[in-house]
């Protein structure tokens, strides 16, 4: 589930509020999005993909954590923005779609392209 909106990185563009398919975010008093409906998060990682400054972190577990993970640790491990990087979104990157040729699933058949 969505665990972190980085106050340090967020530029208050409201993109995550707009794109979240389950309407998890609201705009906070200071403009930084807040997780009003965290339990509705479906752990789809789409907000991370759309965040232009890698300010969001979605933990892969589909339940809320007792405590959010430490932002500095995540940044040090390269996990803030890692999904956006892997799908090749962001200026100067090659779209992941261009490279998405998977292994053949039956070894004799055509390669999987999804």
């Amino acid at each position: 589930m969505i665990e972190i909106v980085s106050r340090e990185r967020c530029i208050a563009c409201d993109k995550c509020i707009a794109v979240c398919p389950t309407n998890v975010f609201d705009r906070g008093a200071d403009g930084i999005p807040v997780l009003t409906r965290q339990s509705d998060c479906q752990t789809c990682f789409m907000c991370e993909a759309y965040c232009p400054v890698d300010a969001l972190f979605v933990d892969p577990r589909s339940h809320p954590l007792p405590e959010p993970p430490d932002e500095a640790d995540l940044a040090a491990e390269g996990l803030l923005g890692s999904y956006r990087e892997q799908i090749g979104w962001g200026r100067g990157r090659t779209p992941g779609a261009r490279l998405a040729v998977g292994p053949s699933l039956n070894r004799s058949g055509a390669p999987l392209t999804s």
Binding site: F45, D59, P60, R61, L79, S82, Y83, Q86, I87, G96, L99, A100, V101, G102, P103, P111, L112, T113, S114
Partner: peptide, 24 residues
């Protein structure tokens, strides 16, 4: 059962498949 080459192809084809692993 995946060869190293197949493992690399999996990452390119389905980046989100690896999120639960990489992040845990």
């Amino acid at each position: 059962k995946a060869t190293p080459e197949e493992q690399r192809a999996m990452r390119l084809a389905q980046p989100n498949f690896f999120l639960p692993f990489d992040r845990q």
